[in-house]
């Protein structure tokens, strides 16, 4: 038998070539794209943010490993998706958060949101956003404390809060990230570097980010009484750009059809605008994307494109 095994070549259904791209490569590229904001966070808020990131990522990976071990499932930490979830969640934290808070969040994200629904690819809402919203409700005091560094209460008002209070905000500071906020969302410059990297590496298509940001921009332009300054401030403050780059276009929880992606991004954009403008909560981007996630199966279903050569008139 041994000899026959050696002689017989493998058989399988075509195609016999596979691209070198793997799920792990995709996930690692997302992690690399997040490095600029991680570095900016440590530079701007102090090295403690690195502790937050490392602990959150470690907890996420450990939670996945332990859950799968206990449930006798194949161990999937090798696909690196838990690292991405941990990183996104940590980027969503205020810079002075006690480190156990995002760790609780990571366990919630991995176990409750991801693994209970079947693991990678099976969860219907984004684990990191769900965990962020969960933490906001559970620990709202800690999650809304944006003081940082050794200067107590140096600036504890986020740009969003300042706008609401009617104060002036410097656009340039907003752009490079010289403002308070969560670790990952402050520097729009670093976020743009990240998204350009992902587009260059062919990890994402710019469809969802562009339509999402565009929708919010138009919404804010109209609501703000056609004031471009108001629109820019709104776009650049809070988590909108961060959400557009790393949360709205999460593969698993966004539609796969092109039309569906556009509808989804428009929906998320409008919901962000509505929550921002008329609701007391500051979590516009997160909640809108969670709502968008819930619509994904329907959006996919109604946006199946016509197959090649179907429908249309015969020439």
């Amino acid at each position: 038998m041994e000899e026959i095994k050696k002689i017989l070549p493998n058989v399988s259904s075509s195609p016999h070539f596979r691209s070198t791209l793997t799920t792990r490569r995709e996930m690692l590229d997302v992690c690399i794209a997040m490095l600029p904001i991680v570095i900016w966070g440590a530079f701007h808020f102090g090295p403690y943010t690195l502790v937050i990131t490392i602990c959150t990522v470690a907890t996420a990976v450990a939670a996945e490993y332990i859950y799968e071990k206990l449930m006798h499932l194949p161990i999937t930490i090798g696909d690196c998706s838990a690292i991405v979830t941990g990183m996104i969640l940590s980027m969503n934290m205020p810079p002075a958060i006690p480190v156990w808070v995002p760790m609780v969040g990571a366990v919630f994200a991995i176990v409750v949101v991801k693994q209970l629904y079947g693991g990678l690819g099976q969860n219907f809402i984004n684990p990191a956003i769900a965990a962020r919203c969960f933490l906001h409700i559970a620990y709202s005091g800690l999650m809304n404390d944006f003081s940082y560094g050794s200067f107590d209460n140096m600036t504890s008002a986020t740009p969003l809060a300042m706008i609401r209070a009617g104060e002036e905000v410097n656009l340039w500071d907003l752009f490079i990230g010289n403002v308070p906020g969560t670790i990952g969302e402050v520097s729009k410059l670093c976020l743009l570097i990240g998204i350009v990297y992902m587009i260059w590496r062919n990890i994402i298509t710019p469809r969802i980010p562009i339509v999402y940001i565009g929708t919010v921009a138009i919404f804010m332009f109209i609501v703000g009484g056609f004031d471009p300054y108001y629109m820019l401030i709104q776009l650049m403050s809070g988590a909108i750009i961060f959400a557009a780059c790393f949360m709205a276009n999460d593969y698993v929880t966004s539609p796969v059809t092109h039309q569906g992606q556009i509808l989804y991004a428009i929906f998320c954009g409008i919901m962000t605008g509505i929550i921002r403008t008329w609701s007391p909560t500051a979590e516009g981007a997160s909640y809108s994307i969670l709502l968008g996630n819930l619509l994904v199966p329907i959006l996919d279903r109604i946006s199946i494109p016509k197959a090649f050569g179907m429908g249309g008139k015969k020439k």
């Binding site: 070549p9 493998n10 399988s12 016999h16 070539f17 596979r18 791209l21 793997t22 799920t23 995709e26 999937t76 696909d79 998706s81 079947g118 693991g119 990678l120 690819g121 099976q122 298509t205 593969y251 698993v252 966004s254 796969v256 059809t257 092109h258 992606q261 996919d300 199946i304 494109p305 016509k306 197959a307 090649f308």
Partner: peptide, 26 residues
């Protein structure tokens, strides 16, 4: 044999196949 050597995961819905399908299937 690239097929036998490649290790798979669940579908992550990245949509690459949707972009690549010459018949525009999903």
């Amino acid at each position: 044999d690239e097929v036998a050597e490649s290790v798979g995961t669940h579908c992550v819905r990245c949509g690459r196949c949707v972009d690549a399908c010459p018949i525009f299937l999903i």
